[in-house]
Amino acid sequence: MNNFSGVYKEELLNNIIPFWMNHSKDEKYGGYFSCLDRQGNVFDTDKFMWLQGREVWMFATLYDKLQAKQEWLDMAVHGADFMKKYGRDAKGNWYFSLNREGRPLVQPYNIFSDCFATLGFGALYSATGHEEYGAIAKQTFENILKRRNNTKGKYNKIYPGTRDHRNFSLPMILSNLSIEIEHLLDKSLVDQLIQEVIDEVMNVFYQPEHGIIFENVNIDGSFSDSFEGRLLNPGHTIEAMWFMMDLGVRLNDKNLINKALDIALKALEYGWDKEHGGIFYFLDFKGYPPQQLEWDQKLWWVHVEALVCMAKGYVLTGRKEAGAWFEKLHEYTWGHFRDEEYGEWFGYLNRRGEVLLNLKGGKWKGCFHVPRALFQIYKTLEPQPTPQFV
């Protein structure tokens, strides 16, 4: 497995990062273009705050954790300056999208814009020590906690009281965000938050009688027999489990690490397309037709997050099934998503594994999942002086 480390590092530094450095920077108005075609040409100039924050995080993290290259820091600051100037409303909530010049297009209905703004500015504070970046990250994180129980606020279209659900996405993201910005927060808050998100992820959304994590559960944590309640997203489950492994390392909790790997392995078995290969995007728990018409597509982020999870699972536990899954995922992912001709990776395949959209970035795909995964895997699989098995 150690042989993979260099492969992933080279792909990160010689393919993925140069693509975004060369094509995503808006030199005229600031911020980043994310809507890039196969060759890297800009096909739409709208700017999505969650993708802006993610790209700030990526370049700040490379500068801080890999190598202090000035061009990476400059790239991160470039995006942060645009976000600071245009990204928030008067109450500090982050818009979903802006036009190229920075005028708001979509209201701040989506708390994930705030989550990734926090992530980006928190990383930039780590890289530079500039108090302004830390203050923005901390203030935004406080807003997230205030909105935690009603993430969309006045923009929520659900009629209250009939079928209220708890959604998996926020506790999943908080399990990663809480340790990404813990350098800015009181230790007592971080410790409490970590225990809360572990409990929510592993004891509420994960239901051992089914062996599955649900995307939505009733307010009391019980199963909801509805489109939303039956919805399974294998990629979310697997990504969340490597977040749990990271928390397990932080807490020196071997049981949490092993439980997370067990859940991830089951999600892979359940979500793997045994006819065509790859991981399904969505499934219905009872096998009914999902309401998501894209349910059988194979998406980039699902597969690269699964690679991260299996790499961590193998290194932390030594379990052979994690290593076997990593190699199986590596073969499928590199064989189907990587663009040999123009660089970067495709995002969307049909069920048979054929390229469905040949874009390299858009409204949902940016400079985040692929480079983060490559970085995580390269660092995880680096040869270590002593074994890390638990």
Score class of each variant (00 low, 15 high):
D191L: 02
R351S: 08
E354S: 03
R250H: 12
M310I: 01
A90S: 14
E275Y: 00
Y8I: 00
F214T: 12
F346E: 00
Y348C: 01
I198K: 10
K286D: 09
C309L: 04
I179A: 11
F141M: 03
F368A: 10
H330G: 02
G30Y: 15
K84H: 04
D74I: 02
A324V: 01
Q39M: 05
T128D: 01
K65L: 04
T128E: 06
T45W: 11
V217L: 15
T61G: 03
I219D: 06
F48I: 11
D46Y: 14
F4S: 01
N149Y: 08
A264E: 02
Y270T: 00
K138V: 07
G31A: 12
A80G: 12
K266S: 04
T380G: 07
C309P: 00
I257V: 14
F389Y: 11
I144D: 01
W242P: 10
Y155H: 12
V390R: 12
L283F: 02
K146M: 15
L66H: 06
K274N: 08
F223R: 15
R103A: 11
V77K: 10
Y32R: 06
I17L: 09
I279A: 03
V204Q: 10
A137T: 01
A135V: 12
V42F: 03
V304K: 04
E215K: 06
F59V: 07
W325I: 09
R352H: 03
F389G: 07
K25V: 14
E196Y: 14
E196R: 14
S126K: 04
H276Y: 09
E321F: 04
W57R: 13
Q376D: 14
G361T: 10
I198L: 14
D253S: 05
I16L: 00
P104A: 06
S97P: 14
D284C: 07
Q297H: 09
W334P: 05
S113K: 10
M1C: 06
L349P: 08
I179C: 13
Y332K: 02
S5E: 07
L119G: 02
E55A: 08
K266Y: 10
L232Y: 09
I279G: 00
Q192N: 11
G102F: 14
L12Y: 07
I213L: 13
M172A: 08
L145K: 01
Y125S: 01
N93C: 02
E101L: 08
L66Q: 12
G221C: 08
E382M: 10
P171I: 13
V77F: 05
G248I: 11
Q384L: 07
P289E: 02
P234V: 06
S222N: 04
N41P: 15
S113M: 09
